[in-house]
Amino acid sequence: MATYQLQINGESRTIDAEPDVPLLWVLRDEMGLTGTKFGCGMGLCRSCTVLIDGASSFSCMLPISSAAGKAITTIEGLAEDGELTPVQQAWVELDVPQCGYCQTGQIMTATHLLSDHPQPSDAQIDAYMSPVVCRCGTYPRVKAAIKRASELFYEA
C-alpha cells in the first residue's frame, strides 16, 4: 500500500492503493466514479477513456502510480453545474447512444479530438475515434455528432 494524491475533476483526492492497481478500478471501486467503464482490460476497446492533462488515455492499464499528480478528467467531470459540454449536447441532439456502455470512451475521445482539431476532417475523426469500439453500431451518429459539436463550439 502507498498513498497517492490524485487530481480528479478539479478536486484533490488522497488514495491508499497498491502501486500497480489500474486507475480504472480506483476510479470505479474506490471513488464511485463508475461512468468510466471496464470493457476489455487491455486497452483494446477504450470504454475506460479518461482525459489526463487533456489527452484521452485508457485507464484500464494505467497504474495508479503513473497517474498521480496529473490532472484527470472523467465523464462525470465534463458537465459543470449540470450544463452539458458541446460534445454532450451534440450527443443528445443526435440521439447517439444505444446501449450507451461505450459512450464514455466515445465522448472523452471526441472531447480530446475537438480540443486538438476544433474543425476536424473525416480523416482526423477516423484517426482519433477508430480505437474506440462500439458494438451497437453508433459510429455514423458519433461521426455526425462530432461535426455538430464542432459547430456548437463556434456558436458558443
Binding site: T34, G35, K37, L84, Q88, V92, D95, V96, Y101
Partner: peptide, 22 residues
C-alpha cells in the same frame, strides 16, 4: 417524433449499468 428517454444519463456517466452497482 422521438422521445429520447435515456440519453442524458448516458452522456454524463450517471446511468448505472450492472457493472456499476455498488
Amino acid at each position: 417524433q422521438d422521445a429520447r428517454m435515456r440519453i442524458r444519463d448516458q452522456v454524463t456517466g450517471k446511468a448505472v449499468y450492472g457493472m456499476d452497482v455498488q
